[in-house]
Amino acid sequence: MPIEEAELVFQGYPTNKQLEIISATRDPRKREELYYFVPDCTELIQLSSTEDVLQILSTSLGTGYASILIPCLSSDQFEEMMDIVIWKNGELDQKSLDIWLFELSLCDDEDLSRFLHRIDIGILASMLRGRFEINSEFLALMIESGTIDPSSKEIQFKDDRSKHILDAVWAADENLFTRLLYEVFELDKEELTSEFDASLEKAKEERDQRVEVRDRQMGIQVTEEQILQTVDLKKLDLKDR
């Protein structure tokens, strides 16, 4: 069937039928094509399960093409996705952070700022640490006094993507920008390092709670903690009667 004809047939179905067809298409590339059968796939994406959309995004992560679909995600879907992709074995995964930073940097400012508010500041700092420098003897003072912004000549970016992200943070919330710089440069090192660790720990706890709530809603009782837990093989705790 020619594509134009297939699009018309697909568009003729009610939304729930379209979602049924999409969900039944297991090949993520073919599933992605179905979303493009409608003029604006935002609603279909947002009504799809996060896992299904994540599978599609994963086919193009790191190429820049994922950023075409990312703006279609709802903020909740984005947060759920982050809760899955940037954590591996209960730890932050730098490789995933890097890939997602790249894709996010290609989104427009409005979408980017919508999503940035759903990423914990400690995680955001992990994404950006080492990607830019501030050349000033009075780094802390400049940050503290709010005299620095992404266009300041003292900031040297190592890549465009981090500049784009910082621009978006600045445009979205100046206070967030300042807090982010504190985190990135670990100012008052002793105090802030422990604060940073605590912030990451808190982010992880909050993420774990969100994951558990979502799992319970889906009827999943097994927890991530149980999967990662090892047992004392000499003292097995198995019921036998």
Binding site: I84, V222, E224
Partner: peptide
Amino acid sequence: EISHKLVAIKADDFSS
């Protein structure tokens, strides 16, 4: 449930 969690925790490429 175990498989679901294992994929979520371990998978690098969710499209694979």
